Amino acid sequence: MASPLIQLFDHFREDLDDYNDRRERLIKASRDVTNISKKTIFLLHRIVMEESTDDHALAKHAAMRAREKLHEVQDMYAGMKHELEGDRFWRHQRQVSPGLQEYIEALSFAHYLDHGNLITFEQVEETLRDSNGVLYFPLVVSDYLLGLSDLTGELMRFAISGIARRGGRAKANQVCAFVRSCKSDFERMTPYIRELSKKQAITTQSLEKIEDAAYAIAVRGSEYDLPQDMLDDIVTQTISTFGSHGDMKGRSRRRDDETDDEYHPDL
């Protein structure tokens, strides 16, 4: 029979093996969540850029499709519930956090397209509950805010991509005001949440890009006394002509490559 000391070290070994195995499973699950959330964001961008006579209905359709896709993530979190019971969640939060932030970014983008406002903490929590109303794991305020901070980058892409569409300039101005409000509100949280200051710098860059695009078109529009519909057509033709020379497509491909790196964090 092994001595009590050997038995004690065997117990430590089992605990360490269990911890490492669970950590690896959660890292893999978080990567899968990140991948699905990234695809959901791409799906939203793709649908809202489709031709439609009713942009509001198109945005509603995009949000519905995104929520259907995000059910896959919610099912994955349901399967992870037993892995994160009690204090296990706090021991493994760093493995869960990257995927959760990506999920919140996708969910908040769909919510914005559907309702035109910011998804609340309670609304995100509701998507992380089982049929009995029990949370799969605690939703940390820092993950919620960091996920929302990432949303501003997607809103920048949404505004600039659609600025050449009919009514796109007005929509870009709305997005600009919304992102500016988010930046102002999040600024008060930067002393308390690690990494938020870095994301605020990216939000500032996104806001500047929206402002520059909206300002450039506003200045050009003021130079000509044209009806709004005719001005929309001129902007659309200009963007189309620019893209036909391949520059726009090349930039789009480079952006996709950069986005792949952005959405696959080193866990």
Rank of each mutant, 00 (worst) to 15 (best):
D143E: 09
D143V: 02
D143I: 03
L145K: 06
L146Y: 07
L146D: 09
L146H: 06
G147E: 10
G147D: 11
G147Y: 05
G147C: 10
G147M: 06
L148C: 11
L148N: 12
S149R: 04
S149L: 05
D150A: 05
D150S: 09
L151C: 04
L151F: 03
L151E: 04
L151K: 02
L151Y: 03
T152M: 10
T152Y: 09
E154F: 10
E154I: 07
L155Q: 02
L155N: 02
M156R: 05
R157Q: 09
R157M: 04
F158R: 08
A159E: 01
I160E: 02
S161Q: 15
G162R: 15
G162C: 15
I163G: 00
I163T: 02
A164H: 14
A164T: 12
A164L: 11
A164R: 12
A164C: 14
R165M: 15
R166V: 09
G167Q: 13
G167N: 13
G168M: 04
R169Q: 13
R169G: 06
R169H: 12
R169D: 07
R169T: 07
A170V: 08
K171M: 06
A172G: 07
A172F: 02
N173P: 03
N173R: 11
N173W: 07
N173L: 08
N173G: 13
Q174P: 02
V175H: 00
V175K: 00
C176I: 07
C176Y: 12
A177C: 01
A177Q: 04
F178G: 02
F178T: 01
V179Y: 00
V179R: 00
R180D: 14
S181N: 07
D185W: 01
F186R: 00
F186G: 02
M189Q: 15
M189P: 07
T190R: 10
P191H: 06
P191Y: 06
Y192S: 11
I193Q: 12
I193L: 15
I193G: 14
I193R: 11
I193P: 06
E195M: 15
L196I: 07
K199P: 06
K199G: 08
K199S: 08
K199F: 09
Q200H: 05
Q200I: 05
Q200D: 03
A201Q: 05
I202E: 15
I202F: 13
I202P: 09
T203D: 13
Q205C: 06
Q205P: 00
Q205L: 10
Q205D: 12
L207N: 07
L207F: 10
E208H: 07
K209L: 03
K209D: 05
K209N: 07
K209V: 02
I210A: 02
I210K: 03
E211C: 03
E211L: 04
D212S: 11
D212T: 10
D212A: 13
A213C: 13
A213F: 10
A213I: 10
Y215F: 12
I217P: 01
I217V: 05
A218W: 00
A218T: 00
R220G: 15
R220Y: 14
R220V: 09
R220P: 04
R220E: 15
G221Y: 05
S222G: 13
S222Y: 10
Y224E: 15
D225P: 03
L226I: 08
D229Y: 02
D229E: 08
M230Q: 08
M230H: 06
M230S: 09
L231G: 06
L231W: 12
